[in-house]
Simulated assay, not measured.
Amino acid sequence: MKLARYTYKGKTSVGKIGGDTIVDLSGDGIGLPADIASILASPDALATAAAAAATPGNSGCVALADVRLEAPVPAPGKFLALGMNYKDHEEEARRLGLPIPTSQVWFNKQTSCINGPYDDVHYPRVCEQLDYEAELGVVIAKEGRYISEEDALDYVGGYFVANDVSSRDWQMKSPTWTLGKSFDTHGPIGPWIVTADEIPDPQKLTLRLMVNGEVRQNSSTSLMTYSIAKQIEYLSQVMTLKPGDILVTGTPAGVGIAMSPPVFLQVGDVIRVEIDGVGHVENRIVKEPRI
Results as ranks from 00 to 15, higher is better:
Asn85Cys: 05
Val263Gln: 13
Ala63Gln: 11
Ala53Trp: 09
Ser222His: 07
Ile228Glu: 01
Asp44His: 11
Ala81Cys: 15
Val156Ala: 01
Glu282Met: 08
Lys204Glu: 12
Gln237Leu: 09
Thr251Asn: 02
Tyr123Arg: 11
Met84Gly: 06
Pro124Glu: 08
Val248Thr: 15
Glu149Phe: 00
Thr225Cys: 12
Phe79Glu: 03
Ala141Met: 07
Gly144Phe: 02
Val62Asp: 06
Lys181Gly: 01
Cys113Arg: 04
Trp177His: 14
Val62Met: 10
Val23Asp: 08
Ala4Cys: 13
Phe107Gln: 06
Gly31Trp: 10
Thr176Ile: 10
Asp119Lys: 09
Pro99Met: 12
Gly116Trp: 03
Ile232Asp: 03
Gly254Lys: 01
Val156Cys: 02
Glu198Thr: 07
Asp28His: 09
Glu288Asn: 07
Val215Ser: 11
Lys287Trp: 05
Val281Met: 02
Leu136His: 02
Ala37Ser: 15
Arg208Ser: 12
Gly116Phe: 06
Pro74His: 11
Ala93Trp: 11
Ile285Cys: 06
Leu179Arg: 13
Asp119Thr: 07
Thr21Trp: 08
Ile100Val: 14
Phe183Cys: 07
Met210Thr: 13
Val263Glu: 12
Phe183Tyr: 14
Lys204Gln: 14
Gly256Tyr: 07
Asp201Thr: 07
Glu233Ala: 13
Pro175Lys: 08
Arg95Thr: 08
His122Ala: 08
Asp269Leu: 06
Met239Leu: 15
Gly277Gln: 03
Ser222Lys: 10
Ser167Thr: 11
Pro200Ala: 11
Asn115Thr: 04
Ser26Val: 04
Ile271Cys: 11
Gly31Thr: 09
Ile147His: 01
Ala41Asp: 05
Ser222Glu: 14
Gly158Asp: 01
Ala81Met: 10
Glu70Ala: 11
Ala37Gln: 10
Thr48Val: 15
Glu70Gly: 00
Lys204Gly: 12
Ile147Lys: 01
Trp177Tyr: 15
Ile199Tyr: 06
Thr7Met: 09
Pro33His: 14
Leu247Thr: 01
Ala50Met: 09
Glu92Tyr: 02
Val121Lys: 04
Val281Thr: 15
Ile17Thr: 04
Ala52Pro: 06
Thr185Cys: 06
Ala141Trp: 02
Ser13Asn: 10
Glu150Thr: 14
Thr111Phe: 06
Lys242Arg: 15
Asp269Gly: 07
Asp120Ala: 15
Leu69Gly: 03
Ile39Cys: 06
Asp151Tyr: 12
Ser222Tyr: 00
Ser174Trp: 15
Ser174Arg: 14
Pro33Lys: 14
Ser59Arg: 13
Asp151Lys: 15
Val270Gln: 04
Ile17Arg: 04
Pro261Gly: 06
Ala75His: 14
Val267Phe: 02
Ser174Asp: 13
Asp20Gln: 09
Glu91Asp: 14
Ala49Cys: 08
Lys287Leu: 12
Glu92Leu: 07
